[in-house]
Design a protein around this nucleic acid. Structure first.
Length: 464
RNA sequence: CGCGGGGUGGAGCAGCUUGGUAGCUCGUUGGGCUCAUAACCCAAAGGCCGCAGGUUCGAAUCCUGCCCCCGCUACCA
């Protein structure tokens, strides 16, 4: 039985189409998932849409939908279309409005409740309607919301709370004892200092609107959207069902998420799992953001790139390659058309494309396209290089260093181009007595292309 | 004292965990080859690795202080 590997991506708000930053996360996860499959693992890879956000409802209202669910249905279709065009090989796509999710969330909620970690309390504070959030005294400037220049209202609400503070010490100990629990290290440090500063209980229900999953013990409240969303990682494995074959994939080996939501994943989610008596995930990896032309992407300013624009112009593999190679995994990166075209031309077209082109042309010209035989006594320069590349790629992928893996592969590409220069097969072809050398040279080149195709499969599945 | 990220040849970046001749891509200059996509290969120029101290035989890499840029506060991964 193959060892299992479970990787998840964050589920996305269904109120707008994914931009390149959103796609980046799925592409990274897909590369990891494909690599693991190639390495023989039994991989499960999930993604989905988060549909219970109040922002989703507002967007549906704005567009004139009388039924928010109908809007979500359409968005789910469009999201999945984008992911398919990027060749994202996900195992399942979960939507938070699905019955299986609702059942799972309520089950988890009940578990936490039974553990004594949910209580009813009052929530009160200054509420800015424009921010849709409570503001602390120290946030106010002259008694006003600093962003909207208006006086917030004092609101009191009766809410259910999750006793997050109960888990402060256990979380801290777990993170300290497991260096790979939160990655990269900078995020880990951030979370540790956050916990050190003390955790407060959080409000986990809303009664001011009904777009969401009702509390099992009080249907007048809906469950806070983050509790709802985080649960997807287990509901997609059938947590809400009596029996699920998929449960063998838990715990997750990697939760791949954006750096902005590390707090939810590294504090609240593990605390929920601890409370419910469920095993914790192995690694939570917070990747960086992708800027566009040097500036943060923004939907309102229409400063963003649609992944499909890039796919139409250069193909999915080119976009995947650019993001995986150009961005140091874990850090922020920048997408610009200029850089993209540069990478495309230099790496894909010239280095790799030309290598393929010249190799195949020579095989055709000298051997009528038939792969020649190798002289066993010939040197193994290129073969040895490929062997080293395999080791380097494997080490890099085990450590989730996607950009390093591609670096290593491209060194092999350049080595192959150098190999051609060194062997000068066009000169060998003019000398019949060196026929064996020529055959070996071409054999090695073609064999190397085959190796490259395997190496590149995880990153560029279409063309490899 | 809010939290965090970054400052490396003209541009964009890696290296920093586990100190020991500063590396990659693009660009520039010169050369080579002709199988191939005006491609590919070789060579050269170009950096006091933000600043100042400290630890060390030795620091881009560890420690301390400072400066500058960016993100978190507005839908957003």
């Amino acid at each position: 039985m193959a060892e299992k590997f479970y990787i998840t991506t964050a589920i996305d708000y269904a109120n707008d189409l994914p931009h390149v930053g959103t796609a980046y996360e799925k592409i990274c996860a897909d590369a990891i998932a494909r690599y693991k499959r190639l390495a023989g693992y039994d991989v499960y890879f999930t993604m989905g849409n988060d549909e219970h956000s109040i922002n989703v409802k507002k967007e549906a209202d704005r567009l004139g939908y009388s039924d928010t669910a109908a809007y979500c249905d359409e968005m789910a279709v469009r999201f999945e279309e984008v992911w398919r065009k990027l060749h994202i090989s996900y195992s399942d796509f979960i939507r938070t409005t699905e019955p299986r999710h609702r059942k799972g969330v309520q089950k988890l909620f009940r578990k936490i409740h039974d553990a004594g970690d949910i209580y009813k309390g009052h929530y009160e504070g200054w509420y800015c309607e424009s921010c849709e959030a409570f503001l602390g005294e120290k946030d106010l400037v002259g008694g006003q919301c600093p962003h909207h220049k208006r006086k917030p209202e004092w609101i009191q609400e009766e809410n259910y709370f999750f006793a997050l503070s109960n888990y402060q010490d256990r979380l801290f100990d777990h993170i300290t004892a497991h260096p790979d629990f939160i990655r990269p290290e900078s995020r880990r440090n951030e979370i540790l200092s956050l916990i050190r500063g003390g955790l407060e209980d959080i409000s986990i229900s809303r009664s001011s609107f009904d777009w969401g999953i009702p509390l099992p013990m009080d249907p007048s409240h809906v469950i806070y959207v983050w509790i709802d969303a985080l649960s997807n990682y287990i509901t997609v494995l059938g947590y809400g069902e009596a029996e699920s074959d998929l449960w063998r994939y838990w715990p997750a080996d990697v939760h791949l998420i954006g750096k902005d939501i590390t707090r939810f994943h590294c504090v609240i989610w593990p605390a929920m799992l601890l409370s419910a008596g469920i095993a914790l995930p192995r690694t939570i990896f917070g990747h960086g953001f992708i800027d566009f032309e040097g500036r943060k992407m923004s939907k309102s300013q229409r400063h963003a790139v649609q992944p499909l624009d890039a796919v139409e112009r250069y193909g999915a593999d080119a976009l995947r390659y650019f993001l995986l190679r150009e961005v140091t995994f874990g850090q922020d990166g920048d997408f610009s058309w200029e850089r993209f075209e540069q990478r495309y031309n230099a790496d894909l077209a010239n280095d790799l494309g030309n290598l393929l082109s010249r190799s195949v042309a020579m095989a055709g010209r000298y051997f009528e396209g038939v792969v020649p035989h190798r002289d066993p006594s010939g040197d193994r320069i290129l073969m040895d290089q490929a062997r080293q590349t395999l080791d380097r790629v494997d080490a890099a992928m085990s450590d989730l260093q996607l950009h390093t893996a591609l670096d290593a592969i491209w060194e092999l590409v350049r080595a192959a181009n150098r190999f051609v220069e060194a062997k000068a097969p066009w000169a060998l072809a003019k000398d019949p007595s060196r026929r064996a050398e020529l055959e070996t040279c071409l054999y090695d080149l073609l064999e190397n292309l085959r190796h490259l195709a395997v190496f590149l499969y995880a990153f560029m599945p279409k063309n490899s």
